[in-house]
Amino acid sequence: MSDDGALVLFSGGQDSATCLAWALARFARVETVGFDYGQRHRVELDCRAAFRAGLAERFPDWAARLGEDHLLRLDALGAVSETALTREAAIAPGEDGLPNTFVPGRNLIFLAFAAALACRRGLSHLVGGMCETDSSGYPDCRDDAIKAMQVALNLGMARRFVLHTPLMWRDKAATWRLAEALGGAALVALIAEHTHSCYVGDRAHRHPWGYGCGACPACELRRRGFEAYRAALPHQTAPP
């Protein structure tokens, strides 16, 4: 286990929740940060406290390492973004080939603010759920973009930050498997119940993989991944 502390970019979704567990298994002190940028699915932010509380209750060793949570308001990002995540608009492909759920610069801005917070908190490691293996093709989720951002942060802040992306080369089924490897069926169940990935913010409909509309791209990815994960499990060990 590393003695250095880590700051996890924790949105309240499946990916960042899995990354939080990953960090707790590796670092002696772990803090979390979320960003309120006027996202349409703001309900994900409301899930963060329940998930953290569930981790602390079910995993006492992790509870001792789980530090403060921070929530930063980035209203300007929502104000300048004409996207389906920051406006009431139908989710569809954009003219540039990217889905209109892409918020330009979002992850780059998140990492810059996270690094500034980590600098103040004395944390050297930043952990994010960016992934280019099983995603919507967002350019700021690519491995090259994250590596370039690490260089920029280290040069611009004269500090040594290490950016970790545990899910970069994992599809959604592998992300569920990672959660099981980290915390067993209890962590899988906690992620299903207390995280949110649906782009339209639907918490009314409960599926085996969690809450959501069941039709948006985020729900489709989460559902397909969960079904592939479950299909590979021995029947007697499959979590509910």
Results as ranks from 00 to 15, higher is better:
residue 4 D to H: 13
residue 13 G to S: 07
residue 16 S to R: 08
residue 18 T to P: 08
residue 31 E to L: 05
residue 35 F to D: 03
residue 42 R to G: 14
residue 49 A to Q: 13
residue 50 A to T: 12
residue 52 R to A: 12
residue 56 A to M: 09
residue 58 R to V: 05
residue 59 F to S: 00
residue 60 P to V: 06
residue 61 D to P: 04
residue 68 E to K: 12
residue 75 D to T: 11
residue 77 L to F: 07
residue 80 V to Y: 05
residue 82 E to W: 11
residue 85 L to K: 02
residue 85 L to S: 09
residue 89 A to P: 03
residue 92 A to L: 12
residue 93 P to V: 11
residue 95 E to W: 01
residue 97 G to D: 04
residue 102 F to I: 02
residue 102 F to L: 11
residue 104 P to Y: 02
residue 108 L to I: 14
residue 109 I to E: 03
residue 112 A to R: 01
residue 116 A to N: 06
residue 116 A to V: 01
residue 118 A to H: 02
residue 120 R to T: 13
residue 123 L to A: 12
residue 134 D to R: 03
residue 134 D to N: 12
residue 135 S to N: 14
residue 140 D to E: 07
residue 141 C to T: 15
residue 146 I to E: 04
residue 150 Q to C: 13
residue 152 A to C: 14
residue 154 N to T: 10
residue 161 F to H: 09
residue 163 L to R: 02
residue 163 L to A: 00
residue 178 L to C: 10
residue 183 G to A: 11
residue 190 L to S: 02
residue 193 E to Q: 15
residue 193 E to N: 08
residue 203 R to K: 15
residue 207 H to R: 09
residue 208 P to N: 06
residue 212 G to Y: 04
residue 213 C to Y: 08
residue 214 G to A: 08
residue 224 R to S: 08
residue 238 A to S: 03
residue 239 P to M: 04
